[in-house]
Design a protein around this nucleic acid. Structure first.
Lengths: 281, 281
DNA sequence: CCAAAAGTGTTCTCAGTACACCCATGT
DNA sequence: ACATGGGTGTACTGAGAACACTTTTGG
């Protein structure tokens, strides 16, 4: 091992146990009226052939957000990512990676409806996977007959990430990160319904969105038939960039949208109660 | 550097950059009607003599929650810690520790009114510090004339932790972690008021607490003068252990309690928007 | 008696809910 | 004509806010 970076005199770089630090990404988009997560097929050996969240090692002089954005760009192939990225939590149980002790800082990213599966820069296969088709611990459908199983503890990370997205939708205008820069209120409502897995009253949703300051701004344009079929053309709106990052009042999802989830509303992020004698999972 | 733990054949333990991983703890209690955080005086050289959050290195085979509980016991000297501990977020900006590249997993702990400053097992000085007396970035009083400055990025961590506690009080019964196992509704209200830095209507608070299932249970006992002075003896309550970890409906803090904070309601945890080109502190 | 804190009740208002109804367009 | 989705209005209801009032203690 080399000496620690910028280590002054008097410190022993061997005095601390060496960890590997990675970033994992739960990248979401809404497509075909469903919440989808980006998964990649692993080629390297731990869990080779299995599906996993995109991610990779953090460089020794690289900030963690930078590493997350770098991996996001590398794995999605998107240079201009217009969405949102934030830290979710850190997962570092010994043995979660059979190779070595790895601490992974998981992130959540919100993407607008992206061009297509976007295979990564390397040879891996990539796809958008419906989260309802996955067997996530205590979440949504929880299909025991799911054909896809995720590598490492990525099922838990993804379950926490889904909870995070659903919570964020109540208090923040981040739903606009899932749609194009100009969108109709119907599209925005479809995003909410896909993320929450519920139905919303069109009239009340529209009134809440328009009465909430700092959420959307009307534009002069009107949507000329972007969805197939008939219907009156909808007015186009834009995200209000000047607004605060918070919605007042919040839009609380209906109770049936919470019942679908395991431990709703509370786990904004925490991976459990973290009691000393309890199993953490 | 030694070979990575349980590394199978074919993997090079030198292939990843070695990080140090620590846990930092923001331990809160309510005392004298104010929210206090546990700070220790550093003796070792980086920021020696400065005040900092308790914390330490994670062992190479130790789970992160275990490390957090271990440090909590070591630093507070409390064997039986009746409170609550949860992960807050991870702070790993290069250079935050001048010795080496350190990634710190910060935690939040809620403690009942503890016996006293409780100096740690080692020689360091420890004290409960009023969070309003600290200069925390964009929070509460934000005293520019604060006498105490915190080591590393602990001011930011503590600011995020205060936000987390205030948010948690809206949706979870964790306020009971700040009081003894038997408490009066007045005491519980004082805890809420200290954490939110606001005043609540006594009548409405009491009605909300009693109407919220899974929060408190009445006991037969009645408090016999624990606060000095006159007044009718109050009934004693206990935390409802059987309830879900969430409060329905939530108790929203009044708007003036949000205005005290920098970026209220939204940053349940995220340390900012994490844009690639932005400074992340 | 008075102050202080606990406990109870009542009114008002407003936001969420559940609808009904009309408008514009494609087929 | 009719189905489809956009847009508007309205009555009902329940929870929060504000506040008045009673009860029980200590001094």
């Amino acid at each position: 091992m080399t000496t620690g970076p910028q280590a002054p005199e008097g410190y022993d770089p061997h005095a601390y146990p060496p960890f590997a630090v990675t970033v994992d990404l739960a990248v979401f988009t809404v497509r075909d009226g469903a919440l989808k997560a980006l998964l990649i097929e692993r080629v390297d050996d731990p869990y080779a052939g299995a599906w996993a969240l995109p991610g990779g090692f953090v460089d020794i002089d690289e900030d963690i957000p930078d590493a997350a954005w770098r991996e996001l760009h590398e794995e999605t192939g998107l240079e201009q990512f217009a969405g949102h990225l934030e830290q979710l939590g850190t997962y570092g149980t010994p043995g979660r990676d059979p190779r070595m002790r790895v601490v992974s800082v998981a992130h959540v990213a919100f993407a607008p409806n992206l061009p297509d599966p976007t295979p990564g820069s390397d040879a891996r296969n990539a796809r958008w996977c419906d989260v309802d088709d996955l067997d996530l611990p205590g979440l949504r459908g929880s299909h025991a007959d799911a054909e896809i199983t995720l590598a490492f503890d990525h099922a838990r990370i993804l379950a926490d990430a889904v909870d995070r997205v659903a919570s964020k939708f109540e208090y923040t205008p981040l739903a606009t990160s899932f749609v194009a820069d100009h969108f109709t209120l119907g599209e925005l409502q479809h995003v909410y319904e896909a993320v929450w897995g519920t139905r919303l009253d069109r009239s009340n949703f529209r009134r809440w969105v328009k009465d909430t300051t700092g959420f959307v701004r009307p534009t002069s344009g009107t949507a000329r038939r972007r969805t197939a079929g008939a219907g009156r053309p909808a007015a186009l709106y834009t995200a209000d960039e000047d607004g605060p990052g918070t919605l007042t009042p919040p839009l609380m999802r209906p109770d049936d949208a919470r019942a679908l989830r395991h431990d709703p509303r509370a786990p904004r992020h925490e991976p459990g109660a973290l009691r000393p004698d309890e199993e953490n999972r």
